[in-house]
Design a protein around this nucleic acid. Structure first.
Lengths: 211, 211
DNA sequence: GTAAAATATGACCGACAGGTCATATGACCA
DNA sequence: TGGTCATATGACCTGTCGGTCATATTTTAC
């Protein structure tokens, strides 16, 4: 957590520092992200930086906390509809919301990529593993509920399905932003639908297969 | 390419240097992989290193070339059966061979991960992009052939299918080695079959769906 | 035995890293 | 006005990096 001094800063200065920091963590993996560059680009002295943050890790964890809160807030309306929609419809809405979130905040996508890249660095478990585990649990619960309702086949390994669903979620974003367009347009729905259709055929029960 | 001096080295010394280098590239992303550590662990002088290799990048590209050749040789027998087997059977054999290759050479898997992580580094296009494109082409050709034979639905986007098949290939390896076992055992076939079954239902024609 | 060619060596270079700290600045209060 | 306390500053510390180079040693050729 940043020190009190940071929160006493004028709003715009705080925002500038955060923006510069996010750009740095988006452009470089954690060990190569440079405090020197951040202070230079933010126009503050090196000493000031260490009045605001304990160290580089402190800053990264704070940035990730902000991103996490924003993403949860973004997906909350969708997740609150659980129970009212069938599994695949809910999943489709989650995928679409995920893509839009990614497109509206390309910096966050890059930061996530850089972090995923540092799977071997000691920073990884502290930074991302917990968040990933939470997402995984959510998908597992959704799948178990869907099996109970007869929307998903019960002869498959739930963990493997959760793994597949979570992975495809990332792949949708990757495919769309890298192979189709970097902006949000009507093709987004088509891509998401094709992925959902794969899933419906792959793990859905027979009555789900031809909607 | 390494300099001639490197190839004049006694076999065991050359092998030692390569092994140490692979361990280094497996443990750290390229920019943090340290020539200093490599020479120390290999017991050679820094100057000698630069008699053997132009620079750090030269060494990495050589390591990747070796890995690529080994993998091609490993998959060749399977790919030569193309035309004799149907699409999904061939794919299943490719997936299984891929898992076994990954398990027999865990170092290579780590090196690949570290590289994939450096997607933003200038080393990436030189090092991996070409190899990935080749794999992608192979899958696209296999899919087109399968469509011609009526084994795969023709109403889907071929590029998206190739993307999916390639991605699932990586996911199979990841899931099995991280969630099931680090050793080869009978569960390997089950995991591969679940992924293949998922694909068969998702992109196969109706006559493929219930084999 | 000797000259030439190939190979081995590690001190050294400049660049940059994260982090520290003595000191300067300026706002607030008595 | 003088004193106190939060904040700002950048020179400086130690460490590591990729890469160089003058020099020493070994191998080869005659």
């Amino acid at each position: 957590m940043p020190r009190a001094t940071f929160f006493n800063l004028p709003e715009d200065k705080r925002a500038l520092i955060l923006r510069v920091a996010m750009e740095e963590f988006a452009a470089h993996p954690f060990p190569r992200a440079s405090v020197n560059r951040i202070v230079k680009r933010a126009g503050i002295a090196k000493g000031s930086f260490y009045q605001y943050f304990e160290n580089k890790k402190d800053l990264l964890l704070y940035v990730l906390q902000i991103i996490g809160e924003e993403k949860r807030a973004y997906l909350r309306p969708v997740l609150e509809r659980a129970g009212q929609e069938d599994f695949f419809t809910l999943l489709r809405q989650l995928y679409i919301a995920g893509i839009r979130f990614a497109q509206e905040r390309p910096l966050y996508v890059q930061i996530g990529r850089q972090l995923l890249a540092s799977r071997n660095s000691p920073i990884y478990p502290e930074a991302l593993a917990r968040g990933m585990a939470i997402a995984h649990e959510i998908f597992e619960r959704m799948i178990q509920e869907a099996i109970r309702r007869g929307e998903v086949r019960e002869d498959l390994d739930v963990r493997l399905m959760a793994f597949l669903v979570a992975s495809l979620n990332n792949l949708v974003v990757e495919y769309y932003t890298e192979h189709v367009a970097s902006e949000y347009d009507e093709r987004l729905l088509k891509v998401a639908d094709q992925f959902i259709e794969f899933l419906r055929r792959g793990i859905g029960t027979d009555r789900q297969k031809h909607p």
